[in-house]
Design a protein around this nucleic acid. Structure first.
Length: 846
RNA sequence: GGGCGCGUAGCUCAGCGGGAGAGCGCUCGCUUCACACGCGAGAGGUCGCUGGUUCGAAACCAGCCGCGCCCACCA
């Protein structure tokens, strides 16, 4: 035991020891009922971990440590989500390259010496993927180092990645199963599209952003010179207009309905129809339907059987159109073409400005555009609004399972329970099946090819599936059965599916991937369903939802029994911490400044599901707690005499109180409320240091005697319990103080139970009162000394305690300890109405 | 527009049917033999507002106000 215990160096020391002794190694032979499997969130490997990660991963770690101490074989792997767009974006910037799938693989490829974001070098898809793997590997090492330093009790021998071969095999295999059962299908349909990344995105990946816009009133031309005025925010889509709509009950437009009007600029005849979703209060009550301005346009297009007039290309620019040809009718094709030529090739924003100029010139813009602010849908990682573009995509059926998914959600135990509402809201609000294909490169490919017929037409409706034994396959380099490499892209040959899966399509299988990584199939079956899914609330609609869906389709069961939802870390202004605000503190810096235990203490104080302010002050408090545990342990244990019978009433009362704390902390942990477990433990520990340790100090220093033996026993038992109660929260200091006097790791020690603190002798009620009154009197004497501004060791010549007879009787049981602790020379007990203490201090010698 | 959560001391929060609490911050004091990375004491609050239920409400119910988040077919 060190003379002057310190926190310095504990992290290095114990990280190494834990690794050397494989303290957190998962026991693969444990029987099913003793397993506790955690579906750890694989953090996105696209830069760095932030304070929010430290926050929520600490929550999970406290649970893992508690369960391990309860004797469960804790399956606690780490995964890295390296698959997907964020990595691609980083690789592009970092190496100055862009992926061009038409280029052939170059085995000798080296990234350009001087990275240039303006003029990126085109590289083949396999080369691009290699660069992605190279970059993620170094990130993952840095992540692991941080997690170890934070003290996560992960078994690092089971780490998986979402781009790894295992994940790809499982993901592709699951997809083929879905295809076989008709739960995955391909469709050419209007799709949410990001024009920068040039890929489809899913409903779950959208977010609203408030953006300035403008309302434009446009003049459509009716019969006999009658005009129809229409308000729109998207005049640039006028060429794509296929109808005007009014509400069926709207009398104002009754004359127009059923007829045709001509569009401004293009003189294209479009019908005027009615639909219940049109809101008469908005604008003029007339709305134009385009291909496609927003999701409502898609509804109208579908329900009213409208034609399509696609004008936006995948790059977000207006595509070439020949007015006057079928589908592009105009009463004045020359005018229409002249107008359109002004717009073709422009981006949406450019085309909008130009359209307004043209409409002003023709007088078809009524008044000035009115500035407005409105919510626009963005891909969450995107920079321009999503568009709706028709393309061929793979979907997984979700709508038809809505009821079943709601029922699944109700089987899950949510912590906190109200988080279930977010899940149900999301499921109830689904508008389409899940689009899982992305027109990107660094992801899991679809394990299918398509035959090309003799006319060079690709037969998408007859995909050639990979065999299970082939998986994982890359259809851009691997071959379907019965074909030769030369037939790729040739009439009579084949072509690989060019897309990759949405990253959630793979990470939604994380329980399967993680458990498969553990070893043999029998073990995987024992691990499923897992016990716990920990995650933050913002990805309920993505990761949580898709995992429940995949397990419903794959195994007809839940992926896990419990979902523990953590909140976010907010900056002191109550805003979500974000890089753009420049308020992000790097986690490693925090660990160096305050120590891992202190940072964990702050994190574990954040209650489940609750957003928590970043608070360095709380970390200092955590550090104080760690130091206190060191010093209290040293005081209690150094040169401690032999344990004896628990003969002293105050010792017995203390152990009984502590048993209550153990019960409370255990119950809290069982309900996933680690924060409450910490709060109970901590507040009692401070009381223990401030009152109990002070009361028993005299007996603790006695060499022998019944009182000394009793307190030695109580100190050993209470310290052992405190050290174990704190182990999940401050694992480094807990291990340190445990190592001074106990064999093995505290983290594999048994979680304390009431039996550790059982007390046979004495009257519990009276002795509890004895402890309470002794503490009350101690506080009163301290107050008297504080008011007299004397030191606490100043002697009290006489202390008179007034209280009820039973309380005085109880106090006699602890009077010896009290007099030592408060330095009372003469203690007198008098019966009185109210508790009070009169303390007469000994005059200080001058 | 719908849903969820939250409004308690200057700050961060606990309490959720019978004493208004903790930590930090603040003030005062203490070299005390585990700890000055410490110890002791103190000041500080019509528990968002309005009604209701109850012997009794910070807590339960209703309405309102404010903040945050999620969702929505936001032309």
């Amino acid at each position: 035991m060190p003379e002057q215990p310190s926190l310095d160096g504990l992290e290095q020391k114990w990280c190494g020891e834990w690794d050397r002794h494989a303290v957190y190694r998962f026991d693969r032979d444990a029987p099913a009922q003793e397993l506790y499997a955690i579906d750890t969130p694989p953090p996105t490997v696209s830069g760095s971990l932030h304070v929010g990660h430290v926050f929520s991963y600490t929550h999970t770690d406290t649970i893992a440590r508690y369960q391990r101490m309860r004797g469960r074989a804790v399956f606690y792997p780490m995964g890295w989500d390296d698959n997907g767009l964020p990595t691609e974006r980083r690789v592009q910037n970092h190496f100055g390259v862009r992926c061009d799938p038409s280029i052939a693989y170059d085995a000798d490829f080296r990234p350009p010496a001087a990275a240039s974001a303006e003029q990126p070098a085109a590289v083949s898809r396999p080369n691009f993927v290699q660069l992605c793997l190279q970059l993620t590997e170094s990130d993952e090492q840095a992540f692991e180092e941080l997690w170890r330093r934070l003290g996560l009790s992960v078994d690092w021998s089971m780490t998986y990645t979402t781009i790894g071969r295992l994940a790809q095999r499982i993901s592709q295999s699951s997809f083929l199963g879905l295809l076989e059962r008709g739960q995955a299908y391909q469709l050419e349909a209007p799709t949410l599209w990001d024009v920068d990344f040039q890929t489809a995105v899913a409903q779950a990946e959208l977010e609203d952003r408030e953006r300035p816009g403008a309302m434009h009133r446009l003049r459509f031309h009716g019969r006999d010179g009658a005009d129809a005025l229409v308000d729109t925010t998207r005049p640039e889509l006028l060429a794509a207009c296929v109808a005007l709509l009014a509400h069926p009950d709207d009398a104002r437009h009754r004359e127009l309905v059923g007829g045709e009007v001509l569009t401004p600029l293009f003189a294209s005849p479009v019908p005027v129809l009615t639909h219940r979703l049109v809101e008469p209060e908005k604008g003029t009550g007339l709305v134009m339907v385009c291909t496609f301005g927003d999701l409502t346009d898609v509804v109208w297009w579908r329900e009213l059987n409208l034609p399509v007039r696609p004008v936006l290309g995948p790059d977000g620019r207006l595509v070439p159109v020949r007015w006057g040809e079928p589908g592009w009718e105009s009463r004045d094709p020359q005018l229409a073409q002249a107008s359109y030529d002004e717009l073709q090739g422009l981006t949406v924003n450019q085309a909008r400005r130009r359209s307004v100029e043209l409409l002003s010139q023709t007088g078809e813009l009524v008044g000035e555009p009115t500035p407005i602010t409105h919510a626009v849908k963005f891909f969450e990682k995107g920079e321009r609004p999503v568009e709706i573009i028709t393309s061929r995509q793979w979907f997984i059926r979700t709508l038809e399972h809505r009821e079943a998914l709601i029922a699944r959600g109700r089987e899950i135990r949510w912590h906190p329970p109200y988080m279930r509402a977010r899940f149900e809201d999301w499921v109830n609000g689904l508008t389409g099946d899940w689009n899982v294909s992305r027109q990107r490169f660094f992801g899991v490919p679809f394990p299918v090819w398509y035959p090309i017929d003799q006319d060079g037409q690709t037969a998408y409706e007859r995909p050639l599936r990979a065999r299970e034994e082939q998986l994982p396959v890359d259809p851009s380099t691997d071959l379907p059965d019965g074909y030769e490499p030369e037939q790729r892209g040739q009439p009579g040959g084949f072509v690989g599916d060019p897309d990759v899966m949405d990253t959630w399509a793979t990470s939604s299988l994380s329980p399967l991937i993680a458990s498969a990584g553990a070893g043999e199939a029998a073990l995987q079956q024992r691990l499923l369903p897992m016990e716990l899914r920990p995650q933050a609330h913002d990805i309920i609609r993505t990761w949580l939802f898709t995992t429940v869906l995949r397990f419903h389709l794959e195994r007809d069961e839940l992926p896990w029994r419990n979902a523990a939802i953590s909140g976010w870390v907010l900056d002191p202004d109550r805003k979500k911490m974000s890089k753009s605000k420049g308020n992000v503190v790097t986690p490693m810096h925090l660990l160096e400044q305050y120590g891992a235990d202190a940072v964990r203490y702050w994190a574990a104080s954040g209650r489940p599901g609750t957003d928590t302010a970043f608070d360095a002050q709380q970390m200092k408090v955590g550090r104080r707690l760690a130091v206190k545990l060191l010093n209290a342990s040293r005081f209690a244990l150094v040169d401690l005499g032999p344990s004896g019978e628990l003969s002293h009433p105050l010792d017995r009362a203390l152990l009984r109180r502590l048993a209550g704390v153990v019960a409370d902390a255990s119950e809290s942990f069982e309900g996933y409320d680690y924060a409450r477990a910490l709060e109970r433990t901590e507040s009692f520990f401070w009381w223990y240091c401030d009152y109990y340790l002070e009361l028993v100090k005299a007996r603790r220093y006695e060499a022998e005697g019944a009182g000394a033996g009793s307190v030695s026993s109580a100190l050993r038992r209470s310290l052992s319990v405190f050290q174990r109660l704190f182990a999940p929260f401050v694992p480094f200091v807990a291990e340190e103080v445990w190592s001074w006097w106990q064999p093995g790791s505290v983290h594999t020690a048994r979680w304390p139970a009431a039996e550790d603190l059982s007390v046979d002798a004495g009257d519990p009620d009276t002795e509890e009162v004895a402890l309470a009154v002794a503490a009350d009197v101690l506080r009163e004497v301290r107050k008297a000394k504080s008011e007299a501004k004397v030191k606490m060791r100043a002697a009290v010549a006489e202390a008179v305690v007034y209280d009820s007879a039973p309380r005085l009787a109880a106090l006699r049981l602890g009077a010896d300890d009290l007099c030592h602790a408060a330095v009372i020379e003469r203690l007198e007990l008098r019966e009185g109405e109210q508790f009070s203490v009169e303390a007469r201090l000994v005059e200080e010698a001058a």
